[in-house]
Amino acid sequence: MRLMSGLLSLCLSSVVIAQDWTSESLAQAAEARIRGFGDSSATLVMTLHNGAGEQASRQLRVKNLEYTDGEKSLMVFDTPRDVRGSALLSYTHPQGEDEQWLYLPAIKRVKQIGARNKSGPFMASEFAFEDIITPFWQKFSYGELSQDTFNDMPCYVLNRHPNDRHSGYKRQRVWIDQEHLLIRQVEYYDRRDQLLKVYQATDFTLHQGQYWRPALMTMRNVQTGKHTTLAWSEHQFGQGLNDRDFSQNALLRAR
């Protein structure tokens, strides 16, 4: 019996790849590809390029934990040094309002912040809060699906519209490669439906034989010429992180 069901699931997965996608089912499948990791951690260097040759960088450490009703993420800043030890805890949900808490070490204060600042820039970067938090497929409604290539890879291109009226975007176009179902590029259109930003993810690496993660993310603002890169390293999965590492008390001891 057990062998049978194993065979069955193998057959099913190959059927899934061959099936006729809709934008929505493709979004679900792409999400399934990067979820199921349980817990993870990584180091992040964010570099802001202002378009005039100047750049500034921030280093932070990120931990994630999956929940049945969403995902918690804890970011701790190492640089710039005036914000060293500051921590941002986010609890994102497929449906409903997300929650965010900021810990300010200088005054030992945890502040719950309004989660509707999602359209605002994250640490002065070209990434908005809503771009860096988990983009659950339920947060969008879906339009037509087409095909294109990205870096010579055959890709599906899906159209999605944020359900949240506080989003900074009218719609997004998402390039998902046909081989691994990974998000390679996203075009963000502002509320006036003008192309605002282009996101590209490159240098994907397979971790522990099952989790694909890009080592480099770039967000380019086509209206201002500024861009931001996120360089990821030290990915770790399944370290046994638990609720306690993402609690209010965890914020107090974040470092």
Binding site: E97, Q112, I113, G114, A115, R116, N117, H166
Partner: peptide, 9 residues
């Protein structure tokens, strides 16, 4: 107490 309602605290 703090009640968080979107942009209003």
């Amino acid at each position: 107490a703090q009640l968080t309602q979107g942009d209003l605290l």
